[in-house]
């Protein structure tokens, strides 16, 4: 009961835009649903199952933890499943289509349990991108299986045949592009470049149609105000590096750009994983530097055929996010600019 004349003393402000974290997450999820839908069209039913498995696992883990927290009388960490849905969808779209479903479920489980809830619980904030860290962890474990005969049959997502390709030579690179040149839409044959841009049935599920990712990503980044400096610097650096190596080695620079920039592990990754807010720098200069470093590291790992190069690069750079925040701090209003009187 309020005592007459006594009121609540509160600091400003007293107004809020009304745009909340849950809304941000929900809208991000909806944008990714468009990409997921495009991927299902391109890659078929397997993509749909991967998405269902990843989302289902994420939701089950979330519901279990939520129930446990409620039972213990603790305030649930996430009042809404929106951010868990985003994590689950990212896992699904960041999985190679050839990956077994149980691996997708495993990555989703690790993402939500260890790197989403766990990081927040023990480190007060997320330092590593949950989906990327989960994938790196699982990749690392599965890589051990490289020694097993016919590892794909054993359920690994590491593809040893990729080691047969030599991306450091024009011949090796062009020979490896066969995988993209066999695509066709309604009977029309696609070149490797066209396939990389419009219709990929190989690689990350999120890269099914790079053009869709590009359009949806730009719209989402604009409307939801993602850290666009990371996107721009990553894509530009990748473009420059791939064009340069294409010219240097004497292969088609356009195909080289198409491959290095428009595979799902780069284009989807750049828009929806590299911009994950908690694990990336805040300062504008830091974001540019982060994007450039991410592109360089990813590019080098791609050249050496390291599968999951982009996510390994991201996890490595996440560790230094706080250092990036010390770079190129913009001058505030009224500092160091000439005054005209």
């Amino acid at each position: 009961m309020k005592i007459a004349g006594r009121l609540k003393k509160e600091k400003p402000p007293h107004l809020h835009s009304g745009f909340t974290k849950n809304e941000l997450m929900l809208k991000t999820f909806l944008f990714m649903c468009i990409i997921g839908f495009a991927s299902i069209i391109v890659m078929g039913a397997d993509a749909f199952v991967h998405i269902l498995v990843a989302l289902g696992t994420a939701l089950v883990v979330h519901a279990t933890i939520n129930s446990y927290q409620t039972w213990k009388g603790v305030e649930p960490t996430y009042s809404s499943p929106a951010s868990v849905l985003v994590a689950g969808m990212i896992v699904a779209l960041a999985m190679p289509i050839a990956s077994p479903f149980e691996i997708t479920a495993g990555v989703s489980l690790l993402t939500v349990l260890v790197f989403k809830y766990g990081q927040g619980r023990f480190f007060k904030r997320k330092y590593l991108n949950p989906a990327a860290a989960a994938k790196v962890l699982l990749l690392g474990l599965l890589s051990v299986m490289y020694i097993i005969e016919e590892p794909l049959k054993e359920g690994m997502i590491f593809h040893p045949h990729h080691y047969d390709y030599n991306f450091m030579s024009a011949e090796g690179f062009e020979a490896s592009m066969w995988i993209f040149s066999r695509e066709s839409i309604f009977g029309a044959e696609l070149s490797a470049t066209q396939s990389l841009l419009f219709w990929q049935t190989h690689g990350w599920i999120g890269g099914g149609s790079s053009i869709v990712v590009l359009i949806v990503g730009i719209v989402a980044a604009y409307l939801l105000k993602y850290k666009w400096r990371i996107i721009v610097s990553t894509i530009l650096t990748m473009t420059v590096l791939s064009a340069a190596i294409g010219l240097y080695l004497g292969c088609d620079p356009i195909l080289r750009i198409a491959f290095h920039v428009f595979t799902g592990s780069v284009i989807f990754f750049t828009f929806f994983m590299a911009t994950e807010p908690q694990t990336t720098p805040m300062t504008h200069g830091g974001q540019y530097a982060f994007g450039v470093c991410l592109a360089i590291l990813t590019f080098v790992l791609q050249l050496y055929n390291v599968l999951g190069g982009s996510i390994i690069a991201l996890v490595l750079l996440n560790i230094f996010t706080d250092k990036f925040d010390l770079l190129l701090i913009k001058k505030p209003f009224g500092h160091g600019k000439e005054v005209r009187t």
């Binding site: 309020k2 006594r6 009121l7 609540k8 003393k9 509160e10 400003p12 402000p13 007293h14 107004l15």
Partner: peptide, 15 residues
């Protein structure tokens, strides 16, 4: 239960 003096963005609510 809350009375704000001045701007809703910059003013305190009074006790």
């Amino acid at each position: 239960d809350r009375i704000v003096i001045g701007s809703l963005m910059m003013g305190w609510s009074v006790g």
